[in-house]
């Protein structure tokens, strides 16, 4: 696309990146996992891992790299990181061992629960940071493309729904009924006589339906299942 203006294929850069990338990735993982015993941790490690992708996209072009990336994996690690952290934080309460929120030391069975709990939290942080940095990079690099010349609109717009659904459902148990509500609202928003059958308190459903319709137009677009998305986005 318009990428040809800025992207110059260079065999030197490509070869160098191919050589260096695995080492950088390993270093990022090392920084993440060794954060408990030496300087480092999830934030730094995550950024270094993300920089591997940034490097690849400099060598092989931003658009091809974006096409090559599996967006589901990207969304999976981004929201999965938060989910891991939240789950580990809630774990001590849910297990009923008398631990408080985030009291990682109260996990039973695991040897040295504080240390390995902290390591796991670091991994979660690294996942989120890496995912977000990759997303930020590609969005900023591709976002300013002239309207009409946007190759990303079609393939990724269809993946958005499954993506945001996964996010809504993942973080912990308490949000499960909330996301259920949301989908009910959405169908209610589109088909007007549905919510009365579905929910036992029509007034509540009504108010929240208008709320979601008014305040979150973006949600509205991205949360719909993909077949409906096709027709709607084109309009």
């Amino acid at each position: 696309m318009s990428d040809g203006r800025t992207y110059v294929e260079s065999p030197i850069i490509m070869a160098t990146v191919r050589l260096v990338a695995p080492f950088v990735l390993t270093y990022g993982l090392f920084i993440t996992l060794h954060g408990a015993s030496s300087p480092g941790g999830g934030f730094q490690g995550g950024v270094i891992v993300a920089s591997v992708i940034v490097m690849l996209s400099f060598a092989y072009g931003i658009d091809p790299t974006w096409e090559w990336l599996d967006k589901r994996v990207l969304v999976g690690i981004t929201s999965g990181g938060i989910a891991v952290f939240a789950a580990l934080a809630l774990g001590p309460i849910l297990l009923g061992t008398g631990g408080d929120f985030l009291e990682l030391g109260s996990y039973p069975v695991i040897p040295n629960p504080w240390k390995y709990g902290i390591e796991l939290v670091e991994v979660g942080i690294a996942m989120t940071v890496a995912g977000v940095v990759i997303v930020l990079f590609f969005q900023l690099a591709r976002g300013a493309m002239p309207p009409g010349g946007s190759p990303y609109a079609k393939p990724s717009a269809q993946r958005v729904p499954s993506r945001s659904r996964g996010e809504a459902a993942q973080p912990g148990t308490e949000s499960a009924d909330q996301s259920g509500d949301e989908t009910a609202d959405q169908t209610g928003h589109e088909v007007s006589d549905e919510p009365v059958d579905r929910t036992d308190t029509p007034t509540d459903a009504d108010s929240s339906a208008t709320d979601s319709g008014r305040s979150t137009p973006v949600d509205d677009g991205s949360d719909r299942p993909s077949p409906a998305d096709e027709g709607d986005d084109r309009r």
Binding site: G35, A36, S37, S38, P39, G40, G41, G105, K115, I118
Partner: peptide
């Protein structure tokens, strides 16, 4: 308390 050498972490 945490068995982690790096106090920052």
């Amino acid at each position: 308390q945490t068995h982690v050498e790096n106090v920052v972490t």
